[in-house]
Design a protein around this nucleic acid. Structure first.
Lengths: 204, 204
DNA sequence: TATAAAATGAACACCGTGTTGACTGTTTTT
DNA sequence: AAAAACAGTCAACACGGTGTTCATTTTATA
């Protein structure tokens, strides 16, 4: 298979381009980066870039897709039943640990994308995944608000998602001072705390 | 005063430039907009733009500063004492109503700035104002978490800010189906709900 | 109507873009 | 060992937006 050798060569170049972009984006904003900058830093010919990507936006899209795909794959493993099981056992749910581990291992690029010089579409995409695949399978079923705060119900997914996202964002911002296990436990503690309160309320 | 007349002329042009940017940014991403686009659409000479702004980023900064200044001015009026007072009276706190009214009246540009084609630095700035001037004066004093969830405490400001921000974001996203008064009441209901639960917890 | 500042219009050099075509390098197949 | 196949290189190209300039025209008041 002749192709394979060349594929690997191309794959290495692509990887180099991706990594160089990440390095550059830590220095200046994505918009301030030119294809010229990138190829000079990578030690590649500018033409080589166009062999693999249409433009810098195409490259950015590919990087994000890879990242979000990995994120989604983990989140999809969340099982509402298991959540309850581990919750009662008081040990961190492995999938959530895996989630924080994944975020940590890709923290450089994620921090940049979520940061002030990042891509505003990226947090939106992350939130969307969190909303439809994370929030729905964890906290959502545990919360029932009293009727008198009816409007709140409508805003619950948005609030829930925002909280999930806020925790992740803060953790990354602070350069992940806690381990994925600790984060998973903290997350559970929050869920539990809310659950306990809801139960107390409902009993009265 | 001869100057004043010209100042007004310049002010009108500046306003025109700002409004045209907002219109354009609703069509395509900020980065995709050129000064040429903007001035053509505004019916101005390209040179005129440079008479008032250094480049399009300078224009963007000025627009955001104006917006955040107005937001901050309202948030600064929040008085923790009044919050408690209105909370017990069960009527919406006027400052919070004013806040939602302000957001509504500038919703077009705010939505764009918070959107996927917006400026990632903008939500960060809004959250910062919310955290140091909104959260600190409202919910914060009402929440005391039990010791066993110590780490949670560290994340409380981030979570609180997320809740505030999430509500605002969702409301704007949905094109503000509820009035500022309703939103203020909903906000209070959430605060109350949390407070009630915290009190119950602490009594046990 | 005189005047002072704002807005215009045209020209300018500059720089990054994306594309092209001829080339060089590397790896595997025959 | 030669050649096939494709990655990467290099230089050149037209294109388009940038930011600046300067002379000229328009605008709004005193």
């Amino acid at each position: 298979m002749t192709e394979k050798a060349h594929d690997k060569m191309a794959a290495r170049t692509k990887q180099l381009i991706k990594e160089t972009l990440i390095e550059l984006i830590e220095e200046k904003s994505f918009e301030g980066i030119t294809v010229k900058d990138l190829t000079v830093k990578a030690g590649l010919n500018r033409g080589t870039f166009y062999l693999h990507y249409r433009d810098k936006y195409d490259l950015m899209v590919k990087i994000q897709e890879e990242l979000l795909q990995g994120f989604l794959q983990i989140v999809l493993q969340i099982d509402p039943f298991d959540v309850g099981k581990y919750l009662s056992k008081n040990i961190p749910y492995p999938v959530i640990v895996q989630l924080f581990t994944y975020l940590k291992s890709h923290s450089r690029i994620i921090k940049v994308l979520l940061g002030p010089k990042g891509d505003p579409a990226f947090p939106k995409k992350m939130k969307e995944i969190i909303k439809t695949n994370f929030f729905e399978n964890t906290i959502k079923n545990l919360i029932t608000f009293p009727e008198e705060v009816a409007i709140v119900k409508e805003y619950l997914p948005a609030i829930g998602t925002s909280v999930h996202f806020g925790i992740i964002e803060k953790w990354l911002d602070n350069d992940m001072p806690h381990s994925p296990e600790e984060m998973a436990m903290m997350y559970f503690n929050i869920v539990k705390f809310i659950k306990v309160q809801i139960n107390k309320i409902n009993k009265i």
